[in-house]
Design a protein around this nucleic acid. Structure first.
Lengths: 149, 149
DNA sequence: ACTATTCCATAGTGTAATGGTAGGATTTAT
DNA sequence: ATAAATCCTACCATTACACTATGGAATAGT
């Protein structure tokens, strides 16, 4: 399944902000862009959407930047996905009334809407905090590996 | 998740062929188009892909049409999906070597590739026969309902 | 042989989504 | 004031999508 860049980079940016604002400081978009190798201007658009979705709060001015608007374990990934792409969790095929039965309806029930609710169930259980934990675990795993060498 | 029409209609067409060729006769594309309310010419393109993917065999001429190339329970939906859309089951984000670690990698492992393998596991278990069974069950359920009234 | 009917194949086309870029306005710390 | 950051809108090139159009090739009945 192809995920568009806005969603992909949005999740990356959010994770970056979470990881780099743990001391309480705001994270500049230019730093995120540099670290994650994203076009700064494009990232700004994505951050705009994240702010409008209330996932981050921003501070203007010379010491400005972004922070999470609430703890990472209160940020559901399904909400973020919906904010960045209205279609990603939408049910694939909506049927007209005259297609309420028949092959189309059966395929929809058995296949598309099942696929969709599987997907939705997964991202409804995940929070930003899960991504952060994975990242930190990857880090220490790599450090252990270095040490082992 | 938005499924494109080629995939959606392809599955519909395949199911239609299966259901309407049970006596052994070939199913004409024009009949499928009429029953399922699909543009005939567009459907022909989709049937072409289905034939090239060896899911159906065709017979030309005045009594021609399409039939399944093998029993419905030997047609895996994942194969059909792949034949109709090369991206649908592809892993969303491929990482460069220099992104093999870091936030991008963690997000990919924890989120995108997990989502993708969930999806793949589901459609790897399903066959065209499952769709046909669902359709027939829906039919009898509706008949029971009519009778009940 | 002729013709109707069917599948086979490619090319073109209008629309919308995607993936950005650009420019500048606004806010804030110094 | 000015420098640095976010904020906001507009624009644009490319691609994918969802068909349409056109014609060719094979087959079967007459």
């Amino acid at each position: 399944m192809k995920i568009n860049t806005k969603v992909e980079l949005g999740i990356i940016a959010l994770t970056d902000i979470a990881v780099h604002s743990e001391g309480g400081q705001a994270v500049r978009s230019s730093d995120i862009a540099a670290r994650q190798n994203i076009s700064h201007k494009y990232l700004e658009q994505i951050l705009l959407a994240l702010r409008q979705g209330k996932f981050v709060k921003s501070q203007k001015g010379i010491h400005g930047g972004y922070q999470l608007s609430r703890p990472a374990d209160k940020i559901l990934l399904c909400d973020v996905l919906n904010a960045l792409d209205t279609n990603i969790l939408a049910n694939s095929c909506e049927l007209d009334d005259d297609q309420a039965s028949g092959i189309r309806a059966s395929v929809n029930n058995c296949l598309w809407s099942t696929l969709n609710s599987n997907m939705r169930r997964f991202v409804e259980k995940m929070t930003l905090d899960d991504l952060i934990k994975e990242y930190k675990q990857d880090l220490t795993a790599q450090k252990d590996y270095m040490y082992y060498i």
